[in-house]
């Protein structure tokens, strides 16, 4: 069981870091390839002390997320790059179900391109958001895939927002 758990933890780490790399590179289809098409659910949530409620700012299944990616070329977006720096802090593994739960702290930076006054600001990097990934990861057939990702933000002011998932 020990080796199996170690292997699972290794697979979880690799999947989470790969998910950051694909998003950072805006390789949307590569990101979707990491997700379980049948059950994947993605959401961005936070707690608002202003209205004293948990709130959800985005929720999509696999198909919905794919639509967002497919339609990006039709939208006017701030095309500044978002860079996700992640550290996996905790992995729980259920060998019976072949499912892992992972807690990852994530910091997201924005490097300006054309969001505002590119003459002055393009190339400048600033902090965009901090929060956590709370992932459910399937480990069937030796391949890890994302079944669920909750992006729990600590940051509640995200400037002009983004068309990209975090």
């Amino acid at each position: 069981m020990g080796a199996s758990r170690e292997m699972a933890v290794q697979q979880v780490h690799e999947l989470i870091y790969e998910s950051c790399l694909t998003l950072n590179a805006e390789k949307w289809n590569d990101y979707l390839d990491l997700c379980d098409k049948a059950v994947f659910n993605y959401s961005i949530v936070n707690y608002s002390p202003e209205i004293r409620r948990d709130q959800c700012w985005m929720e999509r299944d696999y198909k919905g997320l794919k639509s967002i990616f497919d339609l990006l070329p039709k939208h006017n977006s701030d095309r500044s790059q978002l860079t996700r720096h992640a550290t996996v802090y905790r992995v729980g593994f259920d060998p019976e179900q072949n499912v892992a739960n992972a807690l990852t702290l994530v910091t997201i930076y924005r490097t300006q391109l054309d969001g505002i006054n590119s003459h002055f600001e393009s190339g400048a990097t600033s902090l965009f958001a901090v929060g956590k990934y709370m992932d459910v990861i399937g480990l069937d057939a030796g391949k890890a895939n994302l079944k669920k990702r909750v992006v729990a933000l600590d940051t509640r002011q995200v400037d002009i927002g983004s068309h990209y998932p975090l």
């Binding site: 700012w57 977006s77 505002i116």
Partner: peptide, 28 residues
């Protein structure tokens, strides 16, 4: 209702981001 709201107006929705992009650039 939340899903409908966020599709257009959430900070990761489709319209709000575009509106905010424009008004900042106008100001510049």
């Amino acid at each position: 209702r939340i899903l409908d709201h966020d599709t257009i107006w959430g900070p990761f929705g489709r319209n709000l981001h575009e509106d905010l992009l424009v008004v900042q650039n106008q100001s510049i």
